[in-house]
Design a protein around this nucleic acid. Structure first.
Lengths: 114, 114
DNA sequence: GTCTATATTTAGACATGCCAGATATCACCG
DNA sequence: CGGTGATATCTGGCATGTCTAAATATAGAC
C-alpha cells in the first residue's frame, strides 16, 4: 500500500490539523503523532510541513498558541500548546463540508461514473 | 457550495484525466468539458493545468497523442486526440486504488474519528 | 478580408508540502 | 559540573503542479 504523498495532502492538511485539535489542545509533535497514528502508517507528516501550517492557522485566528509553563519532569524544551479558537471551530465545520463535497465530486470522476 | 480549488486537485488530476479517457479518445478541450460536466459546476480546469498534465502523461507512456487528419467542417485548428494506452489503463487501476486509500485514510481524520 | 469560434501552447507566478540541518532545553548520570 | 540523549521548535531552500494570462494558429461564415 503506497504512502500518501505530499501533493495529495495539499489543501486538506489545515482541516486535518483543526480536526485533531478538536480532541483537545496539543503541541506540535503531538499533533503529528495524532495524525500519523490515525493514518494507519500511510501518513508521515514532517515538522517542516506542520509548523508553517500552524503559523498559517494562527495568523488566520483559527488556532491560538501558548507556551507551557513548566516542563513537567519531561526532558526537552518547553512546548507550545495549540488550541482551536471559536473561529477555528467554525472553519473546521466548513472544512468538513468541503471535504464531503470534494469526495462526492472527484470520487465519481476517478471511479469512472459518467 | 464552494468551488474545488487547485490545491486540492494536486495528485488527483492525472487519474481524473486517465479516467475520462477510458470512455474513449478525446482532445484537450473535450477532456476539460468531460471533467467539468461531471463536476456539478464545482470544477473548473484550465488549459494551463490540463496541457502540462497531458504532456506528463504522454511522457510516461500513459496516453498517446495523434493529430486529427481533417477538421470535419468545424471551425478552428486541428485537434490532438489523446488515447489511453495499455500502460495507462494499468495506471488507472492503481490510481483508483490510491484514491480509495486516500479517502479511507484522510476521511476519518477530517471527520473527527479517533 | 474580416470576424468569430475553436484549439493548442507557453512563460511566469504562486502556494505549500518536503528535506535537512540548526538551535534550544531539560533530565539523568557520573 | 560536563557529557549525553531525548524532546521540541524553527528555518532556508527546494520541488512540484495548478493557475493566470496572453500568444499563436486554423478554419468557417459572411
Amino acid at each position: 500500500m503506497p504512502d500518501i504523498t505530499g501533493d495529495r495532502l495539499r489543501g486538506h492538511l489545515d482541516t486535518m490539523v483543526l480536526s485533531v485539535l478538536e480532541r483537545g489542545p496539543a503541541h506540535g509533535l503531538a499533533i503529528i503523532q495524532r495524525i500519523e497514528s490515525a493514518g494507519s502508517g500511510l501518513l508521515h507528516m514532517k515538522e517542516g510541513s506542520l509548523y508553517p501550517a500552524l503559523y498559517r492557522l494562527e495568523g488566520q485566528g483559527l488556532v491560538s498558541a501558548e507556551w507551557e509553563r513548566d516542563s513537567g519532569g519531561r526532558p526537552g524544551p518547553r512546548r507550545k500548546l495549540y488550541k482551536l479558537t471559536r473561529k477555528g471551530k467554525a472553519q473546521l465545520g466548513r472544512g468538513r463540508a468541503e471535504w464531503e463535497t470534494f469526495v462526492a465530486t472527484i470520487g465519481p470522476i476517478v471511479g469512472g461514473a459518467t
